[in-house]
Design a protein around this nucleic acid. Structure first.
Length: 577
RNA sequence: CGGGGUGUGGCUCAGUCUGGUAGAGCACAGCGUUCGGGUCGCUGGGGUCGUGAGUUCGAAUCUCGCCACCCCGACCA
């Protein structure tokens, strides 16, 4: 591609509203342009990368035996009523009406459509297992789109749906998809980690997320230093924690004055008690029922675990005024589990503790020396808190857990028969009996991968594309288009590289070299070649490596071979995951 | 949806408090200069100041409504 005649509108400054690195760089490098909140046009360069991701995904899915289909983006409401999701999906579902006032939605996902196809077409166990996938534009009317492409409303997604005769079959398919995902992200040149995940609202029995590691990631993922245990924070657990030492011994509990000391930190400092020896008491309402949750002072509540422990669908942390209503007028900060009528669930970390401090259930008072089971009835225990850095691993002895940030780019689910049952898919087994196939579903955020790759691979000057995702593997900087020898050298190299199947961008603009360097840094092609200027005087071109900044003079006849070799080396180094 | 913020040439912003002839830098066009890290100079084109109403002799500026976008929380690939 020739720069001079291409739409590559680079920007010196990014619009103020873009804060995230990938969002800014995608705008500045001229990969995308916004059209509305959370919706973007992909410009030529951005689309090149998007297609590269798409092709890697397609090749690996095909290699895994999945079959590509393309389902409608617009789906009739009827189908969604059958699965029950028309009423339950909520406002993320973009609902539309046609001229006859019939209701439709713009598909945020395609379980209904694929299951409808399955019930029409799948009749026999001989047709199973099957796995269908598509690469499709989806729309989710996010409450708050942000971070550009990373969390847009319209996005490109690969979604796959498998059908097996039984759970043993699903197990095999699931494992195959899990392995395929590893291959996909390795080929993309991304550092990633698969983690155990909560199954969330989609339902199902097991699930893994694939995260691209990046300090700017929205999600926290937990992994063991010693074994391969890894989970997202919502799901991660630790081995049982030791009770903090109790210097008070068996001393009876007593009420002390703590004027104005509300927060854990304030109480800890005021009473000279470590935060892990405080009991944090939270008032929550689950499906309308109020309850006290007890955590160690140095721990944070995990609402998903709490909702599961209470067996409720919606867990609400009420506002201060509502809390006062529920506790008979107590100010937040002095609520405690001693002498209360509210039901109590305590975190496992409090099991076996003694001599703890907690709210006094009276303004400006706290209890100290409190022991569960002695000073109040032994509560029900459950896992309620987020694991913290260096907690012991639940799977292995010596391992400690560490927390990292990640961007979720893939998700695999064992769905079970939720949709196949609701929509009535059935096939005959070898004995002629009707059976409901077991489903799995497997998503990859194709457009999100583009943003995630930038989050993980950039510097102050711009993008540093992994070879596999670069819009062009090589950019040739023609130092001066008015110098015949430079022009001839650049054109010859351009033609030769292209004939070898290498993607090349030729910066043939009549601009100063400095501008071309700046733009080349921004665009992030892994290799670039300077044709002209000082190197050419010695019969050479200068090969530059974007990631390292290395500059290597190369004899012109050797240029193509050197470039091919360097690309191979980079590609190899980057595909280790 | 709740809380906070912003709308002024393509981009970044000043001007708004205190009403009085719409500005700068970048980008764009032309000329010259320069030519391995966003050269320098001159000239030029481009804005009904988000939108509707109101107050006023006069509104980018004051008042009210609406719209859009961004940031912080619950959703998810």
């Amino acid at each position: 591609m020739r720069f001079r005649v291409s739409l590559i509108p680079t920007l010196k400054e990014a619009p103020v509203e873009a804060h995230t690195v990938s969002h800014r760089l995608m705008l500045r490098a001229g990969l995308i342009r916004p059209l509305g909140s959370g919706i973007y046009t992909w410009l030529p360069l951005g689309l090149k990368t998007l297609r590269k991701v798409e092709n890697i995904v397609r090749e690996e899915m095909d290699a895994a035996g999945a079959q590509e289909v393309l389902m409608p983006a617009v789906q009739p409401a009827e189908l969604w009523r059958e699965s029950g999701r028309w009423d339950h999906y909520g406002k993320e579902l973009l609902r539309i009406r046609d001229r006859h006032e019939r209701e439709f939605c713009f598909g945020p996902t395609h379980e209904e459509v694929i299951t409808d196809l399955a019930r029409r077409e799948l009749k026999s166990y001989r047709q199973l297992p099957v796995n269908f996938y598509q690469i499709q534009t989806k729309f989710r009317d996010e409450i708050r789109p942000r971070f550009g492409i990373m969390r847009g409303r319209e996005f490109l997604m690969k979604d796959a749906y498998s059908f097996d005769m039984d759970t043993a079959g699903l197990e095999v398919t699931y494992r195959s998809m899990y392995d395929t995902y590893g291959r996909i992200f390795r080929r993309c040149g991304l550092r990633f980690r698969p983690v155990e995940a909560d199954t969330g609202s989609i339902g199902g029995s097991a699930s893994h997320e694939f995260h691209v590691l990046a300090s700017s990631g929205e999600d926290v993922i937990v992994s063991c230093s010693h074994c391969n245990y890894a989970a997202n924070l919502e799901k991660a657990i630790s081995a049982p924690l030791l009770a903090p030492p109790n210097p008070e011994g068996d001393a009876p509990m007593r009420l002390v004055e703590t004027p104005g000391q509300k927060s854990i930190q304030e109480v800890s400092t005021f009473l000279k008690v470590e935060t892990r020896r405080l009991i944090k008491t939270l008032v929550v309402e689950g499906d309308g029922q109020a309850c006290l949750l007890l955590l160690r002072g140095d721990h944070e509540l995990n609402p998903i675990k709490a909702a599961a422990a209470l067996g409720v669908r919606n867990l609400v942390i009420p506002e201060g005024s509502r809390i006062a209503e529920l506790t008979g007028g107590l100010p937040v900060g002095f609520i405690g589990p001693v002498q209360t009528d509210l039901p109590i669930v305590a975190d496992y970390a409090l099991e076996g503790t003694s001599g703890m401090a907690c709210g006094g259930n009276a303004p400006d008072r706290h209890w100290i020396g409190v022991t569960l089971g002695r000073d109040l009835p032994t509560p029900r225990f459950a896992d309620l808190h987020n694991v913290v850095q260096d907690d012991p691993c639940p799977r292995c002895g010596p391992g400690l857990l560490s927390l990292d940030r990640g961007i979720e780019v893939g998700h695999v689910f064992k769905l079970g028969d939720k949709y196949s049952k609701a929509l009535g898919v059935s096939v005959l087994d070898p004995d002629g009996k009707e059976r409901t196939p077991i489903m799995g579903c497997y998503g990859i955020g194709v457009s999100r991968i583009v943003a995630a790759a930038i989050e993980q691979n950039h510097d102050d000057n711009g993008i540093i594309w992994p070879v596999a995702l670069a819009p062009f593997e090589v950019e040739i900087l023609l130092a001066n288009p008015n110098e015949p020898l430079a022009l001839q050298t650049a054109e010859a190299l351009y033609a030769e590289l292209r004939s070898r199947g290498i993607g090349v961008l030729l910066d043939d603009r009549d601009e100063r070299l400095g501008i071309k360097f700046k733009d080349a840094d921004l665009l992030g092609c892994p290799l670039r070649v300077v044709a002209g200027g000082r190197a050419l005087k010695e019969g050479k071109v200068e090969l530059q490596i974007r990631r390292t900044g290395e500059a290597i003079p190369v004899e012109i006849p050797q240029a193509t071979a050197t470039i091919l070799e360097r690309l191979q080396t980079l590609l190899h180094a980057e595909s280790k995951g």
